[in-house]
């Protein structure tokens, strides 16, 4: 399964749910798989996609929040797994696109290429619902599960993917990305909507 194929599956099972994408290739593929206002493309802050998703999941327990992370990115912020395992937001889904390399910077191998197991790390940090998937069908089956339905807590999926060269690039204007995203998930923004006096 290429990362783009996996990303298409995620966009499909996301429905209207917001997706927070880690910078670089995960964000590029999310745009290629289907640009939508509920996509939050990060252009920096490597490692923080799962933290942003956690904050949003806490702010909006009524909304299923999906994080599209990378193995190299998550390895920069492994403490995030402990925080997610501590708070256990039922509405958070973290999918790690694990291509075992820093593809955006030229394909240097990450520790997952040598056995580092991110699913085991998530379980060790208290995240009970975890999976490692290798095919679009497996990803589809796991992603379609709603953890909130059976109270199993946040869902953490490692998708083992092959690198595929990105074919498109998301919008570059960060404020546009934010405003469009907040409008789509119905967060009030008096700065662009105005407000009664």
């Amino acid at each position: 399964m290429t990362r783009l194929e996996a990303t298409r599956v995620i966009v499909e099972f996301a429905g209207d749910a917001p997706i927070i994408a880690s910078l670089g290739h995960p964000a590029y593929d999310l745009f290629a798989a289907g640009d939508r206002p509920q996509n939050f493309y990060t252009w920096g802050s490597m490692g923080l996609a799962s933290s942003v998703g956690l904050g949003l999941a806490l702010a909006r327990p009524d909304v299923r929040v999906i994080v599209l992370d990378g193995d190299g990115s998550l390895l920069m912020n492994l403490g995030s797994l402990a925080t997610i395992g501590l708070l256990k937001p039922q509405n958070l889904v973290v999918v790690v696109m694990d291509n075992e390399e820093y593809a955006t910077t030229g394909g240097q191998r990450t520790p997952t290429a040598h056995g580092a197991d991110l699913e085991a790390a998530a379980r060790a940090m208290g995240i009970a619902a975890t999976a490692t998937v290798r095919s679009p069908q497996e990803l589809q089956d796991r992603g379609a599960e709603s953890p909130a339905l059976h109270g199993s807590g946040p869902l953490f999926i490692v998708a083992k993917v092959q690198e595929s060269a990105p074919t498109a690039k998301p919008p570059l204007d960060c404020v546009f990305i934010k405003q469009r995203f907040m409008s789509a998930i119905r967060t009030p923004q008096s700065s662009i909507e105005g407000a009664a006096l």
């Binding site: 927070i20 939050f40 802050s45 490692g47 923080l48 996609a49 799962s50 933290s51 942003v52 998703g53 956690l54 904050g55 949003l56 999941a57 806490l58 702010a59 909006r60 909304v63 912020n77 403490g79 995030s80 402990a82 925080t83 501590l86 708070l87 934010k178 995203f181 907040m182 998930i185 967060t187 009030p188």
Partner: peptide
């Protein structure tokens, strides 16, 4: 007031950003 422990300051700012996107003032 909700108190949220982070493991590292950079992570705290990421969580705060997500809270803001969801309508909170972090």
């Amino acid at each position: 007031v909700r108190l949220l422990l982070a493991t590292r300051e950079e992570e705290a700012f990421g969580i705060a950003a997500g809270l803001y996107l969801g309508g909170r003032l972090p």
